[in-house]
Design a protein around this nucleic acid. Structure first.
Length: 892
DNA sequence: GAGCCGACCTAT
DNA sequence: TTAGATAGGTCGGCTC
């Protein structure tokens, strides 16, 4: 049904000259910007002196796949503050005016008037329970520009500034750390990737003379007029037809060197223009020098590199993609093209964004979190288009031992790249039109694979639904962490209820500084290690932490500060195992439990809907949604425990884990006490292991069916011991079960008694990325022989054989490659280790190809002398050729 | 060689 | 300016 099966995107709009019809589009990005004001169309509050006004550019796509840019006007940034002394401050209008004047003088520069207004409004903080639901006076300070927020924030924190008003205590700040884009979205009730409508007559279309972007439809609209649609129900729960341009470049480097943009030319670029969710694709390849035809692709042969770069850029503009994708495009391709174009003075090259006069830029950005480690990346800003690097998505979503396109394609698509070795590129380029064709086919394949991955991994559905569920713009999902998503949901919920989020001031030397443990986590039951030949039933609490928070109403808004408990009757409070107190639901239902209720009921609804949905696109959307809902629910607990986050609240997180510890203990106790010979069962049950939310029970019976029956009954009985919505579920049986120790086991998994599902392995070498393939495969085969074939002797023989192979040099190098993550800058390591030493060596050889922070470093250990340290013997298997004979086959 | 600790990665 | 949590196994380097 696509209307755009041509390379050039449609820009002709029937009603282009008027605003008689509403414009409805799915928003893909929201950017704060300065736009040219057209006084006839825009009512600008406190109208600025110049013709440029702050606004939001909302980019999107219509159902007909037309691109849209809405310049949304009139929304002003703000923050809140309050002070213990504010009663005095607010006593009179006069004092408020004076306060405004003082603040303005600090925040404003030159002739501008930064503080637009200060209002005193009744609000309450989300922190701690309060009987007074209506709140007390807080000051809402509205500012002219987003850049004023930080200045204003600093000004308010300095008491000196307000001495003349008689103030002696600093202000408490609220929502001073909310990004202006998120602020706009929250206040206008719009979520990421939502549909929006500019109603007829409520907007002004830009004309050829006033256009700032290359979108098919460009309009100005006031923020109060643009309608935000609910993305969770029809007809605005679908996905617009997006244009995705995937590309890959080839460079011609001096032999055996990594290409450098100062000297090495770009010789080919391949573009694949795909329509998503449709399956239609168009292919173009740009070559330096002639190139033989390629079936199914358009070949654009260029005489010079300048012409090549220009042709590609012009075609991107014509295609007008909503997304630019590729594999490692952020760190390599885009940056390389920009540098190359700058060196060659192809001035118009960088103008392939949607905003006409703005150039595409690439800057370094670092991201670090405990979960992901540190990562340094280049990041390109292409105004109005989303840059989506499939490599980065795969890195955050999947734990793999290698993230090369080859490896990832094989893993997910069962498809390999066209194999052209690096050293061949220059030769093929310098050959003739046929060899260049061979190279072009290779290049095209590398542009096509990211599109295939995008589809296979349902990346667009998943991102779209995550943006909708959590309310953040799509770009946040690509460049920011987990906590912004919870923060967005909390902010929305709080504001609707007339509550404010305190701005968390992080202390310079905070408690629990990095590395330290701030609070106690889950219980891991001692493992009764052994090989179990009778079925082991696994009972799991469903969504344990979300359930606990809902069951006990744990929230910022329900927490009773120490010393204030006497204000409550005993039946109004829950005292948690950590001694913290929270009011019960009947006093006030917390925001976090309410968010969790909604997420989990919405997930049930989405899952039910999948079953009745035929349309594959809508199924994809729903799958993405149920996944987003589940992930969101699970990250709420982590948000409250994130001591370096936006709003940590350890009483909540510590109470949650403490309840969890009690529950796993109580479950264990119940099973041991109830399932006994004395109570009429055939055996005394035993709990052989358990971790956080699960217990592994040996009921003693030899039969899988019987273990399942007992497991299901036991789960139901245990469930009755706990408040709703806590639920213990019987999930599976392991038979047989090999328990090595805590967090290390393997077993044949049965979810129905007819046949086993699979061999499930946890924590053992086979599932760890820091072992070489030989170790993983050998142990994997041992587990298969022991658990599946029940052949212990055979597995011993197998291991002996593999050892003999190794000693005899019959094991391929590829099986001996170890990979480890480079988790920090090489200078920050306290001890020496193989992968770090190798990273240092490689940097000395060629900085461009050396591993960077966040990369995985593959290495093998070479044969050495007794005195050699192992870590000094690491070598990159790719650099090995000459050193192959020296490899120490024993060292693995 | 014992024992401690840093580093990595995984379980939940 | 930015960052979900803690528990815990294994390995190798380092110190004595």
């Amino acid at each position: 049904m696509s209307t755009n099966q041509t390379w050039t995107r449609a820009i002709d709009v029937a009603d282009a000259a008027s605003n008689e019809t509403p414009v409805t589009f799915m928003q893909t990005s929201v950017e704060d910007a300065e736009v040219q004001a057209h006084t006839r169309s825009v009512r600008v509050e406190n109208s600025m002196v110049s013709g440029w006004v702050p606004a939001f550019r909302v980019f999107g796509v219509t159902r007909e796949s037309l691109s849209v840019c809405a310049h949304v006007h009139g929304f002003l940034p703000y923050l809140w503050c309050a002070t213990p002394e504010h009663a005095m401050l607010l006593a009179s209008e006069r004092q408020l005016t004076q306060f405004t004047k003082v603040l303005n003088s600090i925040v404003s520069e030159k002739a501008e008037k930064a503080v637009v207004r200060v209002e005193s409004l009744a609000r309450r903080s989300v922190m701690h329970h309060s009987r007074d639901a209506s709140g007390v006076a807080h000051l809402k300070i509205t500012l002219q520009r987003a850049s004023h927020i930080a200045k204003c924030r600093r000004a308010l924190l300095c008491v000196e500034n307000f001495k003349s008003l008689g103030l002696t205590l600093p202000f408490d700040l609220y929502e001073a750390d909310v990004d202006c884009t998120l602020r706009y979205m929250v206040d206008t009730g719009t979520v990421g990737c939502a549909w929006a409508t500019a109603p007829a007559k409520a907007y002004v279309l830009r004309t050829a003379e006033t256009r700032e972007t290359r979108c098919a439809i460009e309009l100005d609209v006031d923020h109060t007029k643009l309608i935000a649609h609910d993305a969770s129900v029809p007809p605005y729960d679908g996905i617009a037809p997006l244009r995705v341009l995937s590309f890959d470049i080839e460079c011609c480097a001096k032999e055996e060197h990594f290409p450098h943009p100062d000297v090495d030319p770009v010789i080919q670029i391949a573009s694949v223009l795909a329509e998503v969710p449709e399956r239609h694709e168009m292919r173009r390849v740009y070559t330096l020098g002639s190139c033989a035809n390629i079936p199914g692709a358009t070949v654009v042969a260029c005489d010079t590199e300048t012409a090549l770069l220009r042709a590609w850029s012009v075609d991107v503009i014509a295609a007008d993609p909503d997304m630019i994708v590729g594999y490692n495009v952020q760190n390599f391709d885009i940056d390389y093209l920009l540098k190359r174009a700058a060196n060659l003075r192809v001035d118009d090259f960088a103008l392939f964004g949607r905003v006409r006069r703005k150039r595409v830029e690439s800057k370094e950005a670092t991201f670090s979190s405990k979960a992901m480690g540190t990562r340094k990346n280049m990041r390109a800003t292409v105004d109005g288009r989303i840059v989506l690097d499939v490599m980065q998505i795969v890195q955050t979503e999947h734990k793999l031992s290698s993230y090369t396109l080859n490896h990832v394609s094989e893993r997910f698509l069962m498809e390999r790249k066209e194999d052209v070795h690096h050293s061949m590129i220059a030769k093929l380029h310098r050959g003739d039109r046929t060899t260049r064709q061979r190279l072009a086919v290779y290049c095209l394949k590398d542009a096509l694979l990211p599109v295939r991955l995008l589809r296979k991994l349902m990346i667009i559905f998943n991102l779209t639904e995550m943006a909708r569920v959590t309310g953040v713009p799509l770009s946040y999902l690509l460049h920011r962490g987990q906590s912004i998503k919870v923060f967005s949901q909390l902010l929305r919920r709080a504001n609707v209820a007339g509550m404010l989020l305190p701005t968390h001031e992080r202390s310079a030397e905070g408690e629990g500084g990095d590395g330290g443990v701030a609070y106690e986590g889950a219980t891991v039951l001692d493992a009764k290690a052994g090989f179990y030949e009778v079925p082991i039933a696994t009972l799991d609490f469903a969504s344990l932490y979300p359930s606990i928070m809902r069951a006990h109403n744990l929230c910022y808004t329900t927490l009773v500060p120490r010393g204030r408990e006497h204000e409550y009757a005993p039946d109004e409070l829950t005292v948690t195992p950590t001694g913290d107190r929270f009011v019960r639901s009947h006093v006030h239902r917390g925001l976090l439990p309410a968010i969790l209720d909604d997420l989990l009921t919405a997930r049930k609804r989405a899952r039910a809907l999948i079953k009745t949905t035929e349309d594959p696109t809508m199924r994809g959307v729903l799958e993405g949604r149920q996944l987003a809902l589940k992930l969101s629910a699970n990250s709420v607990y982590g948000f409250t425990g994130a001591t370096v986050g936006k709003l940590p609240c350890l009483p909540i997180s510590a109470s949650t884990t403490a309840f969890g510890r009690e529950m796993i203990d109580e479950t264990r106790r119940f099973v041991l006490q109830e399932y006994t010979v004395a109570n009429g069962y055939s055996h005394d049950a035993d709990v052989v292991y358990g971790d956080t939310d699960s217990v592994m029970v040996r009921f003693g019976c030899a039969d899988v069916t019987e273990a399942m029956r007992l497991g299901a009954l036991a789960a139901d009985r245990v469930t009755t011991l706990f408040p709703k919505p806590v639920q213990l579920e019987f999930e599976k049986v392991y038979h047989p079960y090999l328990l090595m120790g805590k967090k290390r086991y393997a077993g044949l998994m049965w979810t129905c008694a007819d046949r086993h599902d699979k061999l499930d392995t946890k924590g053992i070498e086979t599932v760890r990325r820091d072992n070489c393939a030989l170790v993983r495969r050998t142990i994997s085969e041992v587990l298969r022989r022991v658990l599946l074939k029940r052949d212990v002797q055979g597995s011993v023989r197998y291991v002996q054989e593999r050892v003999r192979d190794l000693l005899a040099g019959r094991v391929d190098i590829s099986e001996l490659v170890i990979t480890k993550g480079l988790t920090r800058d090489v200078s920050d390591y306290a001890t020496r280790s193989a992968h770090v030493e190798l990273a240092v060596k490689k940097r000395k050889r060629d900085a461009a190809t050396a591993p960077r922070v966040g990369d995985r470093v593959p290495y093998v250990i070479l044969r050495g002398h007794k005195a050699d340290k192992t870590y000094e013997l690491a070598e990159d298997p790719n650099d090995l050729r000459a050193a192959r004979e020296r490899m120490d086959t024993v060292e693995w």
